[in-house]
């Protein structure tokens, strides 16, 4: 079985600075990390590998420094890493990103299962997974809270607004996972060392045979036109002050007046 797991490097903070001129996110000087839900996707891939045997390829689109999250994926047990890096990929919306990721999947070839985190904590669109499935014309299971593979099918539980489903999709298929699916492991120091010897590839647009009108900014129908401050609402806040006990007593008085206690 060949599993492709897609990972994204995201800022390690919500306190991101914007370039005042372009409105774009300023990545310089901001620490970054593996998108938390992608860690769940990697863990799911490794568990399937441990159970049934598999080759697990980790794929990330991003600037050269995004290789850090791929190194982590390798240290966690992935077998190969692919960094999709090209200036022509920059500024991509989810349509252009899904096109680029699908081109990489096609070039790697022979895949059975594609795994994504449900969403990335920076963009939070949850669109790239299903869009990549559409690019490849394969079925998808979104919001998976469990995963297993049996007889050429991937079987997952899905937790929806007011129901839970058990669904199956014939391989090859794409699955997006939620945080409930597993508890990601930590890489062992010895595996961090070993990871450096595993195969790592860097592919640009030409390597992928990608049409540059479909990647990056030219391939992105949507864009940010304006950024603005959220409207301030003045709630006329009444403040409690003093020591912890004094504040607690004032809150308790308020709750008493409201007949809550």
């Amino acid at each position: 079985m060949k599993i492709l797991v897609f990972v994204k490097q995201v800022p390690d903070t919500d306190d991101v600075k914007l370039d005042p001129k372009t409105g774009n996110i300023m990545r310089e000087g901001v620490a970054s990390k593996l998108n938390p839900l992608d860690a769940n996707a990697v863990e799911a891939a490794i568990q399937l590998k441990e159970k049934y045997g598999a080759t697990v390829c980790a794929i990330s689109m991003g600037p050269p420094q995004a290789e850090e999250v791929l190194k982590k994926a390798l240290a966690l047990g992935c077998d190969e890493a692919y960094l999709l890096s090209d200036r022509a990929f920059g500024g991509a919306d989810t349509l252009a990103t899904s096109y680029t990721l699908a081109m990489a999947a096609k070039k790697i070839g022979g895949y059975d299962l594609l795994l994504f985190g449900r969403h990335a904590v920076d963009g939070d669109t949850a669109q790239t997974g299903p869009a990549t499935a559409a690019q490849l014309g394969i079925p998808q299971i979104t919001l998976a809270s469990s995963i297993d593979v049996q007889d050429g099918y991937v079987i997952c539980d899905r937790v929806l607004e007011d129901s839970v489903q058990k669904v199956r999709a014939k391989l090859p298929a794409l699955v997006t996972v939620t945080a409930e699916i597993n508890q990601p492991r930590y890489p062992k120091p010895i595996n961090i060392m070993k990871a450096l010897k595993k195969p790592r590839f860097v592919w640009n647009a030409e390597d992928l045979g990608a049409d540059k009108t479909r990647t990056g900014i030219p391939g992105s129908p949507s864009s940010t036109k304006e950024v603005l401050e959220p409207p301030k609402r003045n709630a006329d806040t009444k403040y409690f002050s003093g020591s912890g006990e004094e504040i607690a007593a004032q809150i308790a008085d308020m709750l008493h007046d409201e007949h809550l206690i």
Partner: peptide, 12 residues
């Protein structure tokens, strides 16, 4: 956008 400190107008 960006942790919710700002709002973005997305256009197509």
């Amino acid at each position: 956008a960006y942790g919710g400190s700002i709002l973005a107008h997305i256009v197509i």
